[in-house]
Design a protein around this nucleic acid. Structure first.
Lengths: 217, 217
DNA sequence: TAGATTGTTAATCGATTAACAATC
DNA sequence: TAGATTGTTAATCGATTAACAATC
């Protein structure tokens, strides 16, 4: 399918799209053909105008009095994220967190295929974990090429993260999803997503502190 | 120690504070007494004026030509997050992800103490995992009271999340850190931080898509 | 037609950045 | 004094919200 999106969707909008998708898929199950911006807004606790703006951004248009086509929205959002094709990823660090990610079904449902894992611990190498083979780093380049891997998932706490990332970038990986708390330097052409546990906790603490102060007033 | 912060720090600023803290702690190790906004900005790849605004927000003042007191900044940031006192938390769902969090040393270093875990699987109950006892849900209220727990960490994929959250809120928990992809409804007085794996992956995909479009121009 | 809903254009808001005066 | 750095005040920028005209 060829849906051509010339417009660049801003990040806050892009992050709301999956939430819309989830609601839309439920509506589709219930046989609903159309949906209004106010319905979506109600479900998401945001303003209808924001929904309309988001939908405008992905260049879907609706019909006054009737709303937007559920089918059309679903297809456009799915193709925006390229979730109609599977994404090949490799994972580094088969510790407890790495194993949890390898076994996560929801990620698989979104089209993420982890084609190989790597670990420096020889006791872990050459075994299957959640159906994924653990390799020695020696085979890195070979596997990236063979499987056309574009996403790397980093699940080891710290250490040589930057060296590995440089290697990955030179091998052609376009997205790095890091669970390490270390800061990474990467070229603009490569994308990172940092989801380490400490920054999540830090954000929680920040919100707690803010709330305390707000409610003290 | 009594550092009184009347000002409410905005979230983007609050999220940068730990990164400053990390740099400041390294400076302190090296015996540096003062630091300039431009030094911190350089390390973090942001503008010096933003650093000065952030420091203004936590109400630390500096000295022209000399900079800010490293010691003073460290103390103020640590006390802002209340990291000088430990935070008591309980964890729900001792699956692979839950175990990974129970064993995470970095979280412990930030003062997070997981005082108990809960799981509905009777085979997991009454065992220690990473030094933390797994309880049946029956003991929920008792443990929250006894340990003065204010943070709950949710590590099970989905299901009865909302019911549990309602229970936790009524028991007096003030922060919910959720790794479930389910949306939660909570009162304004309680804070949530949602760090489920799918939303991280979604954000990565969104950035990948944006980057593709930007570099295609 | 009437009325609900989209879609456009302008206003607002919060965060960042800029300019420059104050200060050691 | 001269110059580097803070701190204040204003400008900009991006995202959200508001107002209302267009449309089915």
């Amino acid at each position: 399918m060829h849906i051509y999106l010339s417009k660049i969707v801003n990040l806050p909008t892009a992050k709301r799209l999956p939430a819309y998708l989830y609601i839309l898929q439920q509506l589709k199950k219930n046989g609903q053909k159309h949906v209004s911006s106010s319905h979506l807004a109600g479900k998401m606790n945001i303003e209808p105008i924001l929904v309309r703006k988001d939908i405008e951004a992905i260049q879907v248009s609706g019909t006054p009095r009737i709303g937007y086509s559920v089918e059309n929205l679903i297809n456009t959002i799915e193709s925006y994220f390229e979730w109609n094709q599977t994404q090949h990823a490799i994972l580094f660090g088969v510790g407890e967190l790495g194993v949890a990610i390898l076994g996560n079904q929801e990620l698989a449902n979104l089209g993420l295929r982890i084609v190989a894992a790597f670990d420096s611990d020889p006791r872990k190498v050459n075994k299957f974990i959640h159906g994924v083979m653990v390799f020695d780093l020696l085979y890195l380049h070979e596997i990236i090429e063979d499987f056309k891997v574009n996403i790397a998932i980093l699940c080891f706490p710290s250490g040589m993260v930057q060296c590995l990332v440089d290697e990955l970038v030179s091998a052609g990986v376009t997205g790095v999803w890091s669970f390490s708390s270390q800061n990474l330097t990467i070229p603009d052409s490569v994308v990172t997503q940092k989801d380490d546990l400490t920054s999540g906790f830090v954000e929680l603490c920040a919100k707690l502190r803010r709330n305390e102060l707000v409610f003290r007033l």
